[in-house]
């Protein structure tokens, strides 16, 4: 079990690292400014490895800069979603009772909201923007994290060292932060990874539907442009295939890493000898 899981995890980590480096160094790596207009509809080759789009913008440069937007939305909204999920799950599982019922009720309600339609409605009324999308995804994607964290917290709160800490006069807040939270992290990390993947795909879907931020070149937005301006019809594969591949690879990398974190045994404890 361990060996293939680890290998997949390493591959995922390497791939993700490559994407992160690309995003961070986009300005250095990209051969052109993604907004710069040159010859439109150029085929791949020479100066433009992946050709140009209808406005004559270099597709490779767009792709490299797009990594930045897609990863930012993914990480940003996953961070927000995981934060909300951990907080709600911890409080519900630790204190139980009425608070638990209330918070889990809220979770069920949020779980039932159809997410993509809600975002479409929001986008129709508000100006679609990069941060708005990240915020909305973050505020909707926390439900399963909250449930997983709650069930783990229910186990941890019954462990004897929690009572041990209370016998010695530590407050609930202190016990939550220093005794319960570290026990929760092993289930939170893989969940965080899956949320990143899910958020990236959602951002791509929304942008493809034309609900993204037109001033930001994300991979989903590139697909949208390729679709609406003839890339698909004219079979210009170099226009629509690379962003699609990038979305798949980036989401896949994150998921592989998440799965391997899930399987990994407890980290080695440094033994002070």
């Amino acid at each position: 079990m361990k060996a293939p899981g680890m290998a997949a995890g390493r591959a995922g980590a390497a791939l993700l690292l490559a994407f992160i480096l690309t995003a961070a160094l986009a300005g250095v790596i990209a051969p052109h400014d993604p907004w710069e207009r040159m010859d439109p509809y150029a085929r791949p080759g020479g100066d433009h490895w992946l050709g140009t789009n209808d406005l004559g913008q270099d597709i490779l440069s767009e792709l490299i800069h797009g990594a930045r937007v897609s990863l930012l939305v993914g990480f940003g909204s996953a961070l927000l979603a995981t934060g909300i999920g951990v907080l709600i799950g911890l409080l519900a599982g630790y204190f139980r009772g009425t608070l638990d019922e209330f918070l889990m009720g809220v979770t069920d309600v949020v779980l039932m909201i159809p997410r993509i339609p809600l975002i479409i409605i929001l986008a129709a009324f508000l100006r679609p923007g990069f941060w708005l999308i990240a915020l909305v995804i973050g505020c909707l994607w926390w439900t399963s994290t909250a449930r997983v964290v709650r069930s783990r917290t229910l186990q941890v709160r019954e462990m004897e060292f929690v009572r041990g800490a209370r016998c010695l006069g530590f407050s609930h807040a202190h016990i939550l932060a220093s005794d319960v939270l570290p026990q929760i992290l092993p289930v939170v990390l893989p969940k965080f990874m899956l949320t990143i993947a899910s958020a990236m795909i959602s951002e791509a879907s929304l942008s493809f539907l034309g609900l993204g931020d037109p001033s930001m070149k994300s991979w989903g937005m590139m697909l949208n442009v390729a679709f609406t301006r003839g890339g698909f019809i004219n079979e210009m594969w170099w226009w629509f295939l690379p962003p699609g591949l990038c979305i798949t690879l980036a989401a896949g990398a994150v998921v592989l890493l998440g799965f391997s974190l899930e399987k990994e045994p407890a980290p080695d404890i440094e033994i002070g000898e």
Partner: peptide, 22 residues
């Protein structure tokens, strides 16, 4: 909470389980 530990301390049963393993 301020009474526990400071004024009255309880040594719980099961010492090995009552300490946090991490």
């Amino acid at each position: 909470t301020s009474v526990r530990g400071r004024e009255i301390a309880l040594v719980p049963q099961n010492p090995s389980l009552s300490l946090n393993p991490v």
